[in-house]
């Protein structure tokens, strides 16, 4: 069996894959992130949990610069996200440079966001051809392998509308992996799925974790966090309330807010 993420790019040195220092984000008057500090180590499965509106998805979207942060610093693999620092001054990166940073960060969305006008295979081949300028043959071969690995080798010619939600999400994971990212972001990957389809997506993510992919997972699947997660952060109202090993936080929460949240979801 081939590995899902056999070509994980080696991280540069012993530094954390993601480091957030006092990250703030506002949308107009609403202050969504109020100073997030955290570190995600390479090969770690890092779970973000919390009530909706707590800012976990926003934080995830800041990591690949889909949202611009208003204050603080955010580093991925030692490099500032979206900016370049020279002395005390920050320079915004050009569109091309931002795109180049995003290549190494895969993202999986709650609503899949597959390209509906392309088949499963074409969805997976698109970015390697367009962004990495790979030849069709090379891209096709790896796309085929990845789709085999997520259990959809016999569905490569199907359009997203012809696939179930779980199948679409697995194609979306294969599409992100096709860029050979060193970090994968999952934004509530199973929240839009029928309960009976959640398992097949979590299985793929479990395999990916076993292969050593660095993953940040926003999720409500506490059992997945407990089983697969290496660290867990509980966020509420834009701040980190509690963090630690998933089993400790989930079994033995320290803060009242964590306790009341977990009592409702567990």
């Amino acid at each position: 069996m081939t590995s899902l993420a056999k070509d994980i790019a080696p991280s540069t040195g012993g530094q954390p894959m993601v480091r957030a220092e006092a990250v703030h984000k506002s949308f107009g008057l609403s202050h969504v992130l109020k100073g997030i500090d955290l570190e995600v180590n390479p090969r770690e499965v890092f779970c973000l949990v919390g009530p909706s509106g707590s800012g976990k998805s926003t934080f995830l979207r800041c990591i690949n610069h889909l949202e611009k942060i208003n204050a603080g610093r955010l580093y991925v693999d030692g490099r500032l996200v979206g900016y370049r620092q020279q002395g005390d001054k920050l320079y915004e990166l050009k569109e091309k440079e931002v795109s180049a940073q995003r290549r190494d960060i895969g993202m999986v969305f709650q609503r899949f966001n597959l390209f509906p006008h392309m088949t499963a295979l074409e969805n997976v081949m698109e970015a390697p051809i367009q962004v990495k300028r790979e030849t069709k043959a090379v891209a096709r071969e790896r796309a085929q392998q990845l789709l085999d690995r997520v259990g959809l080798g016999d569905r490569i010619g199907h359009y997203p509308a012809q696939l179930s939600g779980g199948q679409q999400q697995r194609v979306a994971i294969a599409r992100a992996l096709a860029m050979q990212p060193k970090l994968m972001l999952f934004d509530e990957p199973t929240s839009a799925l029928d309960p009976e389809l959640v398992g097949e997506v979590l299985d793929v993510m479990r395999d990916l974790a076993a292969d050593g992919m660095t993953m940040i997972v926003v999720t409500h699947e506490m059992s997945f966090a407990r089983e697969v997660g290496d660290s867990l952060v509980f966020m509420d109202d834009g701040v980190v309330v509690e963090s630690g090993h998933p089993r400790e936080v989930l079994m033995n929460p320290q803060h009242e807010r964590t306790k009341s949240f977990l009592s409702k979801v567990l």
């Binding site: 889909l66 795109s99 995003r102 969305f109 966001n113 597959l114 390209f115 698109e126 970015a127 962004v131």
Partner: peptide, 15 residues
């Protein structure tokens, strides 16, 4: 979501 997905894959605005 389509624009976001393709930006997240590293595609530029024009692409």
């Amino acid at each position: 979501g389509q624009t976001e997905a393709s930006h997240a894959l590293g595609m530029t605005q024009g692409k």
